[in-house]
Design a protein around this nucleic acid. Sequence first.
DNA 1: CTGAAACTGTTATGTTATAACAAATAATAA
DNA 2: TTATTATTTGTTATAACATAACAGTTTCAG
Lengths: 134, 134
Amino acid sequence: MEHFPHTPPNLTKNQSMVMAALLKANGPLSAYTILDQLRSKGLRAPLQVYRALDKLVGYGMAHRLESMNAFIACRHPDGESGSMVAFTICESCGEVAEISNDRFDSQLHKLAGGAGFNVKKSTVELFGQCEACA
Amino acid sequence: MEHFPHTPPNLTKNQSMVMAALLKANGPLSAYTILDQLRSKGLRAPLQVYRALDKLVGYGMAHRLESMNAFIACRHPDGESGSMVAFTICESCGEVAEISNDRFDSQLHKLAGGAGFNVKKSTVELFGQCEACA
DNA sequence: CTGAAACTGTTATGTTATAACAAATAATAA
DNA sequence: TTATTATTTGTTATAACATAACAGTTTCAG
Ligand SMILES: [Zn+2]
Ligand SMILES: [Zn+2]
Ligand SMILES: [Zn+2]
Ligand SMILES: [Zn+2]
């Protein structure tokens, strides 16, 4: 399961459908919302969506927002350069944006390292007001 | 709903029982695990636990771990000084630790601010290896 | 072709969280 | 005190999110 900037994988039928739904949405979708949108295209069961989502997340083409139980297409042009990504979630308009920043990545490692912890993966979700809503 | 270092609230019966369960656990518990532990003490329904947890989290006495759908007692001596807290979650032994750091707090604000976002609340959960397991 | 690996479809079930309503309790103020 | 208000509680039912288990199909390297 490589990262797609290096080897954009050939998606299977279900994976393509789910990815298309995420890209069209332009915002986070729950697995069940995706399922409802794809019933007309033949999907019938949650597992069909969850399995596709697992792969897409593994490829780095989509992200899971833990605090929302939802998924969003990766908007970073070539996937993430580092491994750490943060999301901003506007509490007014619901807009979700993705931030990837090498300096922040190292700050995060340093923070954890100071506590003797070796970070492999992170979930950073920030709530507040986006520029338009502030 | 003030923060408890300033005004330690008098907890209600259910809130006290749930808080006691969290403190005893010394690690994250799901709402349903708490419920099972407190059935012998008279609790019967998930809502009784969720309602207590909502209050405890509001008071700053407990935290919700979004990535685990679980709750943990706040171990910070007097609650958090700043508003931002990070958790480290060891993928080997399951240990969860709480980090509160003013510098990181400001770095997080700066990161978001650079994208025109005004952060009010954050979820930071870091996965990897704790010192003992590394 | 053939076998291994990945993907798919399906049913059933497990887990997490909230809606809606009624009753009891506690805090406040006249 | 007593009426008023707000909070907490109890209960049933249901919604929302996620995975187990099994069988069948497709893909593709050797
Ligand atoms: Zn991304
Ligand atoms: Zn907004
Ligand atoms: Zn804390
Ligand atoms: Zn460990």
